[in-house]
C-alpha cells in the first residue's frame, strides 16, 4: 500500500512539471485479448510494429524471443502468457511496446519489449480517479497492479511495470524452467497469489 501511494505521488509530480492538468499522469492503454490495460508513458521508449522475432530456446513460454532494435538485441515478452492468459496471436494491429526497466543486477537501463494485440491511446488520468488494487477479482497478481483507473464508468488496470517486468523474477522463472517443464514456473506464480 505504501508503495502504491509513493507511485501515485510520483506520477503527480512528473505530470505537474510538464503537462497542463495538475496531479495527473499520462497512460498508454492497450489491448490484451479483450482486456484493456494501461501503463505509465514515462517508462515507454517507443512503439513498434511487430516484426520478426528470434525465438530463444529453453526459456519460459512468455519470453517470445528477441528482436533487433536498431542494432540492440531486445527481449520481447508476451504479456498475455505472463498473466496466464492464452498466447497472443499475431494480427494486423499487433505491436511491440518498448519499455525501459531498471536492471538492478547490472545497474543500468534495460529495454524490454511487450507484445500486445493493439495499442489504443494515451490518456491523462487524475490521481483522484485512481483506486487501490482490489484484493481479488482482477485475475492478476495484486503486486502487478499499480492501481485501477476509473474511466467512463469502467475500470482499467494500471500495471506496475517494475513488478511485471522484474528482470530478477523473469531470470528466476527461466532458471526454474530449465528443468524442462513450465509447470514449475506456473506453480511459482500461483504460490505468490
Amino acid at each position: 500500500m505504501t508503495a502504491l501511494t509513493l507511485q501515485r505521488s510520483q506520477h503527480g509530480r512528473s505530470a505537474a512539471t510538464d503537462e497542463h492538468e495538475p496531479d495527473a499522469g499520462q497512460f498508454l492503454t492497450f489491448q490484451l485479448g479483450n482486456e484493456t490495460f494501461a501503463i505509465d508513458i514515462l517508462c515507454i521508449r517507443e512503439i513498434l510494429e511487430y516484426e520478426y522475432l528470434t525465438e530463444v530456446p529453453l526459456m519460459p513460454d512468455f519470453i517470445r524471443g528477441v528482436m533487433n532494435l536498431r542494432g540492440a538485441v531486445v527481449p520481447v515478452i508476451d504479456l498475455a502468457l505472463r498473466f496466464h492468459r492464452p498466447r497472443t496471436e499475431l494480427g494486423r494491429r499487433s505491436c511491440v511496446v518498448i519499455i525501459e526497466v531498471h536492471d538492478e543486477d547490472e545497474d543500468r537501463l534495460q529495454l524490454i519489449g511487450i507484445l500486445v494485440d493493439a495499442v489504443n491511446e494515451v490518456l491523462a488520468i487524475n490521481s483522484a480517479d485512481i483506486e487501490a488494487a482490489p484484493q481479488f477479482g482482477s485475475k492478476l497478481r495484486t503486486d502487478f497492479i499499480a492501481g485501477m483507473a476509473r474511466l467512463d464508468q469502467r475500470f482499467i488496470v494500471l500495471l506496475n511495470v517494475p513488478r511485471v517486468l522484474s528482470i530478477e523474477e523473469i531470470t528466476l522463472l527461466s532458471r526454474l524452467d530449465e528443468g524442462g517443464d513450465s509447470i514449475a514456473a506456473g506453480g511459482c506464480d500461483d504460490g505468490i497469489e
Binding site: V73, P75, I167, R175
Partner: peptide, 11 residues
C-alpha cells in the same frame, strides 16, 4: 557479439 542481457543469464 551483442550481449543478451541479464534476463538470459541463466541460459
Amino acid at each position: 557479439i551483442k550481449p543478451l542481457g541479464s534476463m538470459f543469464r541463466s541460459l
